[in-house]
Design a binder for these strands. Sequence first.
DNA 1: ATTAGTGACTAATACGCTTTAGGTTGGCCG
DNA 2: CGGCCAACCTAAAGCGTATTAGTCACTAAT
Lengths: 348, 348
Amino acid sequence: MSDKRSPARRPTMKDVARHAGVSQSAVSFALNGRPGVSEETRDRVRRAAEQLGWRPSAAARQLSGEGAATVGFVLARPADTLGVDSFFLQLVSGIQEVLAERHLGLLFQVVEDVDDECAVYRRWWAEHRVDGVLVVDPRTDDPRPDLLDELGLPAVVIGGAPDERHPGLSTVWADDAGAMASVVDELYALGHRRIVHIAGLPGLAHTERRIRTLRAEAGRRGLAEVESVTTNYSDAESAAVTRRVLGRSAPPTALIYDNDVMAVAGVATAAELGFSVPADVSVLAWEDSALCRMVKPWLSALSRDSVEFGRTAARELTALVDGGPARTVRVPVPRVIVRDSTGVARRG
Amino acid sequence: MSDKRSPARRPTMKDVARHAGVSQSAVSFALNGRPGVSEETRDRVRRAAEQLGWRPSAAARQLSGEGAATVGFVLARPADTLGVDSFFLQLVSGIQEVLAERHLGLLFQVVEDVDDECAVYRRWWAEHRVDGVLVVDPRTDDPRPDLLDELGLPAVVIGGAPDERHPGLSTVWADDAGAMASVVDELYALGHRRIVHIAGLPGLAHTERRIRTLRAEAGRRGLAEVESVTTNYSDAESAAVTRRVLGRSAPPTALIYDNDVMAVAGVATAAELGFSVPADVSVLAWEDSALCRMVKPWLSALSRDSVEFGRTAARELTALVDGGPARTVRVPVPRVIVRDSTGVARRG
DNA sequence: ATTAGTGACTAATACGCTTTAGGTTGGCCG
DNA sequence: CGGCCAACCTAAAGCGTATTAGTCACTAAT
């Protein structure tokens, strides 16, 4: 029934074989670089395949044990949370770059929560759909590493901490703790003593890591008025929290936002409340993007190369799929790009 | 070699058959709702499958003629262009919603240009990897519809104009022309006579459609100082163009930006140049998102439901894949959301 | 009472590929 | 000159599913 819109028939190996005047197995040997055919024949087969525009059927190939030539990527965020987030598109773009070289497909899925995500992994595994997966947003007390271990599905955790309990998983991580330490250094040097960290989703490993580090750094310097508040990464919650903390009798002099969107919303809110940035309050965005240069004042930001992050993760996954060992690699520490939204703390 | 990390073996149909004490074909019949097995056996088989956690191998299924249970989505934008764009993530999110119901996978790829995109379609087709594709960013003089026709690959063009030259393709489109007409109406009524449209990529069908309509509407009203300027959708080009046109001796009193990112960058640039929005110049964003409420003044915007757009497209594609007829469906005309960035034109 | 027909199931085949096990040459050694 | 090995190639099996063609027992119809 769908034949009527299938004018072109896909050539099969048999066609190539007939065309080159050899057996089907010879074609397989020739094109996969196996021994067993003369160079001359190999060439002839290659030309025949080329001419017919033949490409191996992914399904057939997989069925005879070659793997799915596909990796999976699940994004577990409620639909309304993934609005203006530059990070993921950039990450995916980097991932693609590496996968494309190897002609690996990327199976992509957006789900509501981690449970759904686990269900997707199970299904993909059972249906042989992917050779491995990329896991983002690792959490404290995350069910996914155990599951992936159990399934024996090669996986790279992006943004997690090194995890020796799951030796089968590779990890690609950024040193959030180090970055947070340097941020506190910087703000402290500028005289800031009351700092609020508008964090991302509670339960995410890097959120917790940043919060812990901030607390530790504050403790080390004897700062009592330093705190973290978790949000859902949205501009709305950012605005709400900003309004709340700036409304205090002794408002913070510095705000650290866990992404660029929240930082922009925060600056707008501060302006509404009559706070001038950076004169009254300094703002730092934990994620750099074009957004940070689209508002006045330009936002100081922690910059990391998300595209390269993606590339690294994809490279680790392909290595893993090829049977290589699991590894833990650290990408460069995000650097603080000082622009116009941070300055010396106001006295008082 | 990869066996050592494959502790769990995936159950096959044969396992289910053995477990239920029937033949393999009986299992197939039972689970696919075919006649040929008693209700009692069907139940027994179903339970066995359930218990073993069996799921059909996607590859095997496809090899026996069932299609790939996957649709493709290619995004042809240079990596640096897909920074802060809320549209695509929302679109994809809507697409996923519909595909997930049907247990269809989404194979996603980012490429540099349309030629690469065509190559991807050819490869997917030849490798039997997808049952259909979603095409975005249709162009004037687009090679893709012809190619997809030739390959007989079911496809839905998102955002194109109805196209009777390719009866095999479905089209889901928004009425850009109508929207532009209403925008001009609105601005004209506010007294604007000099209008600049900072458009998106030249060559994109909807860009050209908007430009043509703007020109026609201007002509109809005898407005000579109305023009469109194409860009690459980036904040940088938007800023450059904004600076240029506002620097004229008789600057425009209204600016229409083809996306939210450019509009935000435009407002920032206008502010830098000492133009107050909307007192000196009105700004309208052709795309609504959280961004529009993150800058001061809040941006008036053309709003459409991108998630629903994605859902509609995905529904059309599944229908097409199921052998249904190609259709052309129009989503609701984007509505103008008036916020604070548009106002009465300044006299002079 | 024989036959046709039906319901419930099994055996066998196809899908397109990889891989293993043969098979046929020709050259070289003993 | 028989035997053996390497080089080249073909036949056949297997991957997991859907499907087509039986098989068998039993009932309904002639």
